[in-house]
Design a protein around this nucleic acid. Structure first.
Lengths: 144, 144
DNA sequence: TTGCGTGCAAAGGTTTTGCATGGCA
DNA sequence: TGCCATGCAAAACCTTTGCACGCAA
């Protein structure tokens, strides 16, 4: 079950937002992307949440530990991502090409090795969801 | 020498900004902090740059590779930091604590291993000087 | 019924942009 | 002289907040 604050209700809007993010794990979205996706998501019978509601709900979900929030996507927008309830193992880094701007999602257990090495030997706890590795993607490194 | 775009002039304002950041390596500042510092920096004879100029200059310096830009400090403001010209700085990673803001220079050959792994297996060429690993430093991870 | 959640609109703060002027090369 | 840089103010942008109403429990 999804954790939530003691004093909070389970509204339709809240459920829609959670459902949307849960269906797209290891992807991240800005508040506006979530708002847009829910506005155009078929069933017009269902009320889609206002942008302000999206922000407020995301805030709460972050506080409850259901989502990770990181700032620094395109134009410094905030991005939100569902936190898998699986074991901690799902280390997930982002590679960003400084030339063309493409964002690559990297699932690789070498990363996990590095994270635990840095934690044990250098006493630093990496936050994989906040960290972006910059460099050149395959295409761009060929063409430069 | 400070690198700069082919088509750019060396103005007083530009030099002040570079000088200020260069004098305070391994510290980072928001655009407003830089603006404020230069406005109150003694010699009133010298014209201090407008905030918009600070932003425009910082943008260029980042493009030229003289500065690092972090997004996501307090309140999602952008922070800028001078990139040391020392050779050693190019070969190591930076760890930045998301709680207290301290910047740690990490010399560790595990990093080199990861860089070559990602280059060979994921066709992505990491740029160590631009990449910042976020997380919690030893002190902060204890206290939270 | 109680009080959190919502929608709307307006405010807030950071960063960008337009335009005329100033200054470097 | 040509052209980029600057200053000022306004705009653009994302995000938060105030208020009245709606809805879950």
């Amino acid at each position: 079950m999804v954790k939530r604050s003691k004093e909070s209700y389970n509204t339709k809007q809240r459920e829609h937002i959670i459902h949307f993010l849960k269906d797209a794990q290891n992807r991240h979205f800005t508040a506006e992307e979530i708002h847009y996706a829910l506005s155009n998501a078929g069933s017009t019978a269902v009320k889609s949440p206002a942008l302000a509601t999206v922000y407020r709900t995301l805030d709460k979900l972050v506080k409850d530990g259901c989502l990770r929030k990181y700032i620094g996507g395109e134009g410094g927008k905030a991005c939100y991502q569902y936190i898998s309830e699986d074991a901690e193992c799902a280390e997930h880094y982002h590679l960003k090409c400084t030339n063309c701007g493409i964002l690559i999602h990297l699932n690789c257990d070498k990363i996990g090795t590095l994270v635990s090495h840095i934690r044990r030997k250098h006493s630093f706890v990496l936050d994989t969801s906040r960290t972006v590795l910059y460099g050149l993607c395959a295409d761009c490194s060929k063409n430069i």
